[in-house]
Amino acid sequence: MSVDIEPAAATQGAAMPAAPAAPAAAAAVAAREDIGRKMTRLAKIRRALGHRSLAIGLVICAVLVAMCAAAPLLTSIDPNAQDPWATFQSPNAEHIMGTDAFGRDIFSRVLYGGRTTMVASLSVVLLGSFVGTIVGLVAGYFGGALGFVVMRFVDLLLAFPGILLALAITAILGPGLTNGIFAIAAILVPVYARLVEGATVEIRGRPYVEAAVTLGAGPFFIIARHILPNVQSSVIVMTTTWLGIAALWITALGFIGLGVQPPNPEWGAILNDGQMYITLAWWITVFPGLMLSLFVVGVNLIGDGLRDELDPTLTRAI
């Protein structure tokens, strides 16, 4: 067995003399390779949690998700139950976030409404990223006339302000949460398609794809085995960024009445309920607004952290 020992040369170019000339660099490279080898999945997760914004974001989101998921345990009040004798109550022991114009409990509405907002925004990014990634992979890998036409259509969609297009689509489909999800997911498709197409074109030209071709790999094998694994970290980072935006858009649709239909709670819809009375009863708008802001901030912190953690030079050995 004759294993080459020239770690310094490997990273610093061919004309480098053997290791003794650059012992420090060689040691650093060797140390890094050692770390890369020994790092288990668990250690990676632990290191990722050491990333401050990622950790804070995860905590915020975990608390919000847990609160909304455990809504029946945290409150026994039906979010849609009206009480004509208890309208506009400010936060008190019985209604810790107060009540609205119909005497409905804001705390209960915020928790149950959060479920809707979160599930809806998650559906939006999953649907949008799934379709958009497929479009991008196909257009990027096969290119040619098909790719050209698809990507020009994508450019066309990207030229519209997203929320405007979402409103137009919802107006055509009719108001409702499901239609809202489809409308916003449709806005995400070109965004993902553009990202994935660019990455695909770049990866398609790499020598390892050519090597796979000479081994006899077909296009779908190459897309599944080489291109998708190498674009997935960009897609994941993008998804966390867009999850926050999707939440804002879902609530925007709810706020203007194109999303969730009354009396069902949803953060945007609750904000709308309260906006007329904001000077009289601040609690109706402030609490759902606070929850929404926290959720978006938390998701964005996770996105920032993942962007750093999923840097390909650090995670090649996942």
Partner: peptide
Amino acid sequence: RRHMQMIFQDPLGCLDPRMSVEAIIGEG
């Protein structure tokens, strides 16, 4: 092509960074 293979100039670029050596050699 099964009988005609290629060795590439860029030793790192021709190996998929997300595949283990076993997967790389066994790909064909």
